[in-house]
């Protein structure tokens, strides 16, 4: 039993860039000397389905995945995915959520509705940090850096500033996009900092 192990779950919709975030995250953790395990689900999830990645770190990590009530923080790239994965969090868990909606097919086709009260419902149960990372990315001039804004917000919310994020970004992001990703990371930290 490894009690010092911390568990981060990233959740989103296929194509939202969760993979890059998990790469930067695990790079920083490994460079800091932690044992790290990460688990992701491929396959049908690629086709616009719900995707999630689990990252666990500590002195020694055993299981690469967790079940209900076991994660410390949930970083959700989309509102409904925050709700879908919320039961994986511990009672006092933290949610960093992108205030953004991607319509699943049952909603798009009119068979179901996308509720408006997700952030409110989540906030009643957990500590929630919500903001529109997509808009913040557009303000920086590149919608695709939404994912690194989420990473920055997670670092702030989860008090992980001691790691060498700059070096991890430099290792995982192509040089020509490094500058904008650095700015996205800082923007995410600032956004979460205001909400904490």
């Amino acid at each position: 039993m490894s009690s010092d192990v911390r568990t981060i779950v990233l959740a989103g919709v296929g194509g939202q860039g969760t993979i890059l975030v998990s790469r930067v995250l695990t790079t920083a953790l490994i460079d800091a000397g932690y044992d790290v395990k990460m688990s992701e689900i491929h396959g049908m999830a690629q086709r616009g389905g719900s995707v999630s990645t689990t990252v666990r770190y500590g002195k020694k990590v055993d299981a690469p995945l967790v079940g209900k009530g076991e994660a410390d923080i949930l970083v959700a790239f989309e509102q409904m995915e925050a709700v879908r994965h919320s039961s994986i969090l511990k009672k006092d868990g933290i949610i960093v959520v992108n205030d953004y909606k991607i319509m699943p097919l049952p909603v798009a086709s009119g068979a179901a509705e996308y509720p408006d009260n997700y952030i409110e419902a989540l906030s009643k149960a957990f500590r929630v940090i919500a903001f529109n990372a997509g808009e913040a990315a557009m303000a920086l001039g590149n919608a695709r850096v939404m994912n690194i804004i989420m990473l920055g917000a997670m670092v702030e919310a989860f008090e992980m500033e001691q790691f060498d994020w700059d070096s991890a970004l430099a290792k995982q992001v192509p040089p020509k996009f490094l500058d904008i990703n650095r700015r996205a990371f800082e923007a995410g930290r600032a956004l979460a900092g205001r909400k904490v």
Binding site: G49, V83, E113, L122, K124, A125
Partner: peptide
Amino acid sequence: KPETAEVEASAVPRPPVLC
């Protein structure tokens, strides 16, 4: 049972779809 906080909302299924 594992302990988590109950969220009073549920998610609509997000099945994989043809691109």
